[in-house]
Amino acid sequence: MKLREIIETLQATIVVNSHDQEMAVELACGSDLMSDVLSRLKPDALLLTGLITPQSVYTAEMADVRVVCYVRGKKPEAETVRLAEERGLVLLSTTLPMYESCGRLYRKGLKGVSET
């Protein structure tokens, strides 16, 4: 799925925009627990999370994830934004809760970690 389609599907606002919106995202993972994310997440995935601390960006960086979307209308902290800009990540924010965000993307064909 293209980044543009993810933004449309989640009606997300772009907080940090470091990539072309035509960029392909192959799979997604939703969790507030970063160790769960690190144990399962594959490169080039989308991370959906409610965690807005700098560790969300560090987690993405370690796992080679380029797009993070904060759910439930959360806006990342200033330090989180700075780190993401420095590392060339894309940060999005959606007002949708976690379950609905995942559901909408899954319905549109974005796969999960166990399917890729």
């Binding site: 490169p43 601390t53 700098p54 560790q55 960006v57 560090y58 987690t59 960086e61 370690m62 796992a63 080679d64 330090e79 590392r87």
Partner: peptide
């Protein structure tokens, strides 16, 4: 906690500079 992750971030970039394979670095 504010800085938790900074060291691994630096290490990762250094390992990338050294040219190790992306999977190994990850």
């Amino acid at each position: 906690f504010e800085k938790a992750g900074e060291v691994s971030s630096k290490l990762k970039r250094n390992l990338q500079t050294l040219g190790l394979a992306p999977d190994v670095v990850r």
